[in-house]
Amino acid sequence: MRGLVLPVMTLCWREVVRFRRQRSRLVGAFVQPLVFWLLLGGGLRASFQPPGTPPGTSYVEYVYPGIIAMVLLFTAIFSTISVVEDRREGFLQGVLVAPIARSSIVLGQALGGTTLAVVQGILFLVLAPAAGLSLTVSSVLSVVPVMFLVSFGLTSLGLVIAWRLDSTQGFHAIMNLILLPMWVLSGAFFPTTGVPAWLGWTMQLNPLTYGMAALRRCLYLGNPTAAGAVPGMASALGITLVFCILAFVAAADAARRSAA
């Protein structure tokens, strides 16, 4: 067991150090969602009151948990891009010839991305008052583990793709095709209620819908109606957990299949 922890921790630590030393990534993962929030929240404030949002909720507030999910998504994605870079630049070769299982390598990478995402998610929580949301201690304590789960699932999903690709261009294409739509259709942007049936189905099949629901339920821990018409806490957490496990297993499998 100890033999497993050390390699995993060192791979995770490296992701964090690299992130700290590449300022531009901080901008991509943190400032960009912030700008999105200001633009969407400000721009749609007057016109946007979809059915299903609790009365009295402004759009700025509605989209705030969604922007947290975006922070998690972007951070997770950017850190999985580093896998593609590691392969292209050669760093991965040295890791692959070490006496550690591919699944440990993937776990280290996933935890690295997750750590970065959660730290930025927590930083974003500080902005809750600007959304008109007053957070209780218990909602902060519950939302952090949920952010961890959602980030771990998203990072693992990113890794499934990253281990199969050899160019960052390819990664960007897939990100725009899969990951961004996942975010848009998760209830981050607009609720399931009031959309055409086919879209509603798509949203219900989207695993991130449940992560999004878990985030909302935790942020409005003492006030469930304010969370809106989203899946209940149990199914939200359960499905998110299953998604995490499946995504990790798929990533470990992709890593095993990948030749150097």
């Binding site: 150090v17 050669g90 991965l92």
Partner: peptide, 24 residues
């Protein structure tokens, strides 16, 4: 390897330590 396998963002010592950790 023929291609570099160092992490250019880490220091020389950090690279060696990272490698050592992978070997326990």
């Amino acid at each position: 390897f023929q291609r570099p396998s160092l992490d250019s963002k880490l220091t020389v010592m950090e690279n060696l330590q990272h490698h050592g950790h992978l070997y326990g």
